[in-house]
Each structure stands twice: as C-alpha cells, then as structure tokens.
Design a protein around this nucleic acid. Sequence first.
RNA 1: GCCCCCAUCGUCUAGAGGCCUAGGACGCCACCCUUUCAAGGUGGAGAUCACCGGUUCGAAUCCGGUUGGGGGCACCA
Length: 499
Amino acid sequence: MTDTSELPVRVRMAPSPTGPLHIGTARTSLYNFLFARHVGGTYVLRIEDTDLARSTVEQEQDIIDTLHWLGITWDEGPQVARGDDIGSYGPYRQSMRLDLYAAEADRLMASGAAYHCWCTPEELEAVRREQEAKKEAPRYNGRCLRLTHADREQFAREGRQPVVRLKVPPETIRFDDLIRGEVEFDNALLGDFVIVRASGVPLYHFVVVVDDEKMDITHVIRGEDHLSNTPKHIALIRALGYREPRFGHIPLILNPDRSKMSKRKSQTAITAYREQGYLPEALVNFLAFLGWSPGTEEEIFTLDELSQRFDLAHVHKAGAVFDVDRLDYLNGVYIRSLTDEQLALRLRPFLPDALDDAAVLRVTPLIKERLVRLADATELTAFLVESDAEVAALYDADALVPKGRAPADAARALAIARDTLDALTDGDFSADVLETRCRRAAEELGWKAGDFFRPLRAAVTGRGVSPPLFGSMELLGRDRVLARIDSALGKVSAEAPTA
RNA sequence: GCCCCCAUCGUCUAGAGGCCUAGGACGCCACCCUUUCAAGGUGGAGAUCACCGGUUCGAAUCCGGUUGGGGGCACCA
C-alpha cells in the first residue's frame, strides 16, 4: 500500500502549545472535527511541542480547555494536561515520542537518505546572503554532503554537533489536494532541509510526517500556509517508505488588510473572545462560515447541524477576512435564542456578586435584546449595583432635562413623578402599575410620555440610555427610586434660575 | 528574488455554460414600531462577477495571458 485511501478515515489536529489557542488553529480544528464527524471517522488531538523553548504546559492546558469550551471533542488524545491519554496510538505529545523520531532518523541515516551537516549558523548565513546577492533561491548548498571522513572527524574533535538533513531528490512532486486539486512542485528548488536539530530534538516537518504515519492519519487537513511545505513532507514520506495521506489545504483567515491573521493586527486568542462574552455556539457558527458554506442561503447552524452538512467540496480556496461585525451579529442571535434561565446562567460570571442569582434572573429579560456580548451586561446593570450616591455623581443636566425644556420644567416633572410614585405601596411597585401611573401623570402635565420619562430615567439610572425604565424601577425598589429622584431633584433645582 | 496558491457588493458568501438585467447575510442609509438604547418590520444604496484575449449559439461559470493579493522558502510550528 502506498497511500491511505483504503483505510478508515482518521484525521488529526496538531496545535502547538507556544501560545493560547489561535483563531486559525481553532478553525482548522473545527474543520477536521466536522469532517471526521461527517464521514464517521476518528478525530485525533496531538500536541506538537517539539519547540521545547516556547512550549508550556499552561498553554497546552489553555488549548485543551478552549477546544472543549468550543464543543470540539476528540476520540483520541490527551484529555487533561497530565497524561491520561485515550486511544491506542499514544503518547499524543510529541515531546514524549522522541525515541520514535530518533529511530526513524537513524533509519534515514543508515539508508543514506539523510546525512549530518556541521555547518554553523554563521556559515549558513553567509551562503544565504551570497545566494540572495546572486538572486538565487536561498537553500542549502549541500556542502556537508561532500565531506570526507577526515573532515567529519575533525568537526567531531572540535566538539561540533551536527544536524541531520534530508537528501531531497531533485524530482517533481505532484499531489491532488482535496481543496485545490492538482498541485505541482519542483523539489530541485528545495534544498536539503534540516530534520533534526544539533540538540537531537527533531523538527516539525519530520515529526509531523512520522506521527501521521504511525497514527494512521488518512487525511491531512490544515491551513494553506502549509501548502508549500507539502513537497517536503512528501519527500520525507517517500524516503521513509510511508503511505501518502490525502492533503487538503484550507484558506487562511485574514486581517482586515488581507494578510494572514496575526496577533499584531487582530485579536487572535479564542480566550479573548470568551472573556468578552462571545458564546461558543456563535464562534463556531462564525468560524465554520469563514471559508465554507453549505451551498444554500441558510446561515445559522449548531455544531451538530454543521457536522451533518460539512463537506470539503464546499470549502473555499480564497482567504476570508475576520469580520467582527458579523461575529457580533451572530452572537446577538445566539444570545436572544437562549431562555432567560439559560442566559442568566451564562451571565453570572460577568456580573458582580452584589447582584445575587435571583436578581440576575430578574434583569435578564430586561437586557437580553440589548446584549452584543455577555460582558455588556456589566454596564447595562450597573445602575442596580451602584449606590445612590454613585448614581447621583453621574447626573448631568443634559440627560436630566429634555430637549427644548428648561431645568425648572424638568424639576416640575420630577416632582410630579415623585409624588406619583410616593403614593404607591411597595406591593404596587411593579412595572405595569408604574407605567400606567407615569403615563397618566405625563398626560395631566400635558407632556409627551417620552419627554416625561427622560428625566426619570436619568434620575433612576444615572444614564440617558438604560434598560426599560419601569422594569428597572421595579428591580430597584420603591425606596431607592424615591431617593434617587430626590437627589436628581436637588441637582436640577440647583440648575434652575430661582423660580 | 524564487516557488506555489488565489481573485463575485466594504465584509462573509450563493453561483459548478443558458434559471443572473448576479441571490442572501453583516455593515451602512431611510422609514415603521417604540419610554431611551436595542430588538423587530419594510425599503434603499452598494458588484461593468479584477483586466485582456480566446472557446461556445451562449461565460461570473471553461482555457490562456496580464494585473493585483496572499502564502512558503528557519537548528518556528
């Protein structure tokens, strides 16, 4: 068998714990997950931590947690950052598979497909500069391939540690990409690349190929940035006598300027979105449509629906700009689709303890339609948490006095409102009753309801914009509402020229 | 510089030769609803399908070139 087309489908995602879970990695993981679910294949998580210097267990933990948070689960791989892997192809961390890579590197050395290279970084740099000056492709010149036995002994005596390079045959590499179709590269342009560091720790291109073979991966679905790396992988596969998997390169997620999405120009950590109160359902739906569509005009899908519909045939070739406005819209759609109870539960972590669970549940219907992100609830409910004095500190004439009216008018309206509400018992202090009474008062005054409500809203919430006024007053309670109107009255009266 | 990939409204996309005088969504604008803000409803602006040549009775859809954009060329992944 020279390829994997007869094998049961196994795909993998291979994040590197050198930073928090990246949007692009999440989307690639999602596509692999959806593909595996759709065809009934196996989905493997493998941690690519061969860059020992930059990999940390904290970041690995973040990746695992965040993937779970998104609802992405795997059939094989680590479950927590400790090592109770599930699956029979483990271990699933490359740092724990070093012996395997060393053995495969030895095989390559023994067969003559790879060789030691003693060139120093300085020497390599010099060659590269020379090539650039001559406008040639920067690649290794094969100097150490022509070393004599004596040369090697000399280097060894100097204490120099060699790297291992693959001898790349000058041949044309062709493969049928699942998304892009026939792609062709000339490996004569490649140069012999390094597969094992001088430290003995193997490099990405090498380990990815070894693991994909040993883990029986049949479909390698990854970002387009790996398209140009594929001929290296195929060269390695051939040198090692492995089976060739199918490759599929999905389009990149882009910054607004259409460059590859980066931390420098965009918010790339999924955690950051989570902290702002984006729902995982919205993020998943949004990410799925960045480079794929079901071919219809439907656009709201759950994870389950996505796994039923997802197919590689509808994956785009062109990159997609990450459009936060669209994410915001989707997030709102998902927030509004939640019941009050569900939403209250999600809101809990974003609201202060001063608001108890019952209070959170009571404000939820008032703010539901106004939330773009869960974190927005903090500002929307601040008037409930703030003391009367804090609210009073926010009072300003502009919000308190309706346009076209004098401060004295606002004072009069406020005074009337105060008397109206004062006449109510605690038991009558409900949104419905409040609204009826206040409307009647406005009418008697001869004011438009909206004008009458404006100073009231400002007095009660300290803001010109707030959740629905009467529901807010009900939540606040009679005493606090009255107290706030009193201090607003004081503020407005001070503004007004003596009547 | 070399190699590779890509190209439909500002953005995400539908479109697999006639159904397209190009559809939907986000955003934007207007109006309606309305106690503010939202949400919702209705309508609108917005794409000579990058350009130029072919193929065809017929092309956004196929082919070639041009231009533009992106990615890759590490002892990072």
